[in-house]
């Protein structure tokens, strides 16, 4: 795969930035989760921020538009988060792989040519479902009652639509318009539309 050093650094630094934003949200999620613990819904507290997890992958594949961009970006983000001291350590590399596949699956089916809002939103929904399936097995969520799982999935999907579906595209398009992403596939599309 043809990745340039600057692509790797760009994704690495963006992942760090998302990682720090995510860390801030983890504190918020932790407080929310703590509040929800007496009601037995602690895991729900983290669900509103799930979309931010998917942003690194969505950003990578949206900007670079080539096979593997989503998966590699999400795994880079996971390795970096592991180094920054996430208490699940290398386990999040495994979740990163699942998230990367989730976000890239639909875009790959469209041969990396369609990047409209509906595509990005649908990719985010697929990613939410796939990651919940992963949670069912690995986190033991299959022990939880179905209505609660559906509630968690619903919150996760809404979060994913907002953050990785809409916000990622919005921010990338603005960055491309500002001319910052000239060296990447998304920047070329904007350069063409302005001519």
């Amino acid at each position: 795969m043809n990745w340039k050093l600057k692509d790797v650094l760009m994704m690495g630094i963006i992942s760090v930035l998302f990682g720090v934003i995510y860390l801030g949200c983890t504190y918020a999620g932790g407080i929310l989760s703590g509040v929800l613990t007496p009601m037995g819904l602690s895991a729900l507290g983290y669900e509103p921020f799930y979309g931010i997890y998917f942003m690194a992958g969505a950003f990578g594949v949206y900007v670079m538009r080539k096979p593997g961009a989503g998966i590699i970006s999400e795994m880079l983000a996971a390795i970096i988060e592991c180094l920054l001291g996430n208490y699940f350590g290398p386990i999040i590399i495994l979740s990163g792989l699942v998230q990367g596949i989730g976000i890239e699956l639909l875009i790959a089916l469209f041969r990396y040519k369609k990047f409209s809002y509906p595509t990005m939103i649908a990719a985010s929904v697929i990613c939410s479902v796939l990651t919940l399936l992963y949670n069912l097995v690995v986190s033991g969520y299959n022990q939880i009652a179905v209505p609660v799982l559906l509630l968690m999935l619903a919150v996760r999907i809404i979060s994913a639509i907002i953050f990785s579906g809409v916000l990622t595209k919005l921010v990338c398009d603005r960055l491309a318009k500002a001319g910052v992403l000239r060296g990447y596939a998304v920047g070329k599309e904007f350069a063409m539309s302005e001519e």
Partner: peptide, 23 residues
């Protein structure tokens, strides 16, 4: 934080296990 996460999952299981969920 890890203990809090584990405690949260414990209480969640207590209330909403699929065998006998209060839902």
């Amino acid at each position: 934080p890890a203990t809090f996460a584990a405690l949260g999952m414990f209480v969640m299981g207590l209330y909403y296990s699929k065998n006998n969920s209060i839902t």
